[in-house]
Design a protein around this nucleic acid. Structure first.
Lengths: 250, 250
DNA sequence: CGACTCATTGAGCGAAGTCAACGTCCGTGG
DNA sequence: CCACGGACGTTGACTTCGCTCAATGAGTCG
């Protein structure tokens, strides 16, 4: 084993946004064994109702957690990016109440539950960090209920952009003002609870404000403050220490 | 102190739906100190952005977790009933990203975080049960995103009824076929992401199916199977062991 | 009896959906 | 090298679900 960066490093960085871990604990996390899986775009790799015995860390690519109605309509309930342990909740609830699909070609690092349980049992601070990350998941869901329930298409899309910008920045994938989001408009529709056609029109409307340029997967935000205002975006719900601190001192 | 039932009993029963606790652990939970607070209907008792140092168990009444948009629209993201620790997540994330309001006159049992942390640290099984309950919270949110994003008013309302019926039954508050839900149509609108007027019309439409009778707060379900079908309701997401087991053996 | 909250109804409107077609890009294979 | 096909994006015409505004019941409490 070389002393280069562990595959788990992005995950540890993610946890560290919300929890303080000592280096001993980080080493324990790094010590977890797992293996890589390559997933092509638009391929499910966890199916609804399955009993899973491992958790999936997103190494690269964009992954969606989704659910479906009986008539086939799909709703994406979470977007996962580098460093996210997409189904960390499965450690305490192994029956998948969700499905996972790669929205862009993705690399997954799969970690058996026993490995995760082992480090959690050995280090209470790790167990708490896992717990806290699941709480953060819930916080994002909850905010998404507000978006879908009470904000119109334009504001909802703007909110998605703000959230994604911040999360990508914290994941070390570009700047909040310029990033790539390689997903189709149909996928965005399933995130936003809209149709693909309306997403298309909403994107045009947002571009018309001049706050943002969107060309294929490339997104450039020209007026961040304005976009935040339009989106009614308050990053507190992301439960990132930095952001809370900034807000508290404001 | 008498040897009668502890105020915490409903909470322990709730945890026991999803986690196995030994009697020693249950005793430890019972030993947590807290105090009662009476909250009148339509009164906030936790405000958005507040730093809380205690968690609120619902003893009686109906409690809503909600969030608001800048223009004042309210979205209820969770309904809490007897036995729910409405803000258990606050134990690991004390800055409230939500507000809590009693929808009907309610009795809250407030437990200081240090008490909860003490038992969680002392008994890893309790920490895991707390974690699992937060995961269940997330699972309900996630399902609610699907409802609001992809189901129309009638189906969405039917889904709410099914979920509520099951949860009230498991909380020991009546039968899934006959229960009371003392909340106004305006509150339901904020749950469903609709207007109160449309809720009213949706209730009439649902009554017209004959599956359900609704009179003020009194709800009687005449055709459960039909309602479940209409609602596209699969209780797996509630993460109640019983229900999962039943489904698995089906 | 008012005053208040909550439920109900009607008429008109608008945001988002549906259906259908066409454009554009890109990989593949004849 | 170009023809074809498939995936994705764009546009227009029309429909519909749910919202807005406004008014009217119905129940309750001081």
């Amino acid at each position: 084993m070389t002393n280069t960066v562990s595959p788990l490093q992005p995950f540890i960085d993610r946890l560290s946004l919300r929890s303080s871990l000592r280096s001993e604990e980080k080493r324990a996390l790094c010590g977890m064994k797992g293996h890589y899986v390559e997933v092509p775009a638009h391929t499910d790799f966890v199916r609804l109702g399955e009993d899973v015995d491992h958790a999936c860390m997103v190494m690269n690519g964009i992954v969606a957690r989704f659910d479906q109605t009986r008539d086939g309509a799909r709703q994406i309930t979470a977007i996962h990016i580098r460093g996210d342990m997409a189904d960390l909740p499965s450690v305490v609830s192994p029956r998948a109440g969700w499905a996972l699909q790669a929205l862009s070609p993705s690399t997954i690092f799969r970690i058996p539950h026993p490995e995760l349980r082992r480090v959690a049992h050995q280090y209470p601070a790790i167990a708490e960090a896992f717990w806290r990350d699941c709480v953060a998941d819930g916080s994002l869901f909850s905010q998404w209920v507000v978006n879908v329930g009470r904000r119109n298409a334009l504001v909802r899309f703007a909110h998605l952009l703000c959230e994604t910008a911040i999360r990508l920045e914290y994941a070390g994938l570009g700047n909040r003002l310029a990033f790539t989001l390689p997903i189709t408009q149909a996928d965005m529709a399933d995130v936003l609870g809209l149709t693909a056609i309306h997403v298309n029109r909403t994107i045009q409307a947002l571009k018309a404000t001049g706050y943002v340029s969107i060309d294929r997967a490339t997104i450039v935000i020209h007026q961040w403050e304005q976009l935040v205002l339009l989106a009614d975006f308050d990053p507190t719900y992301l439960l990132i220490e930095d952001l809370s601190a900034r807000r508290a001192s404001a």
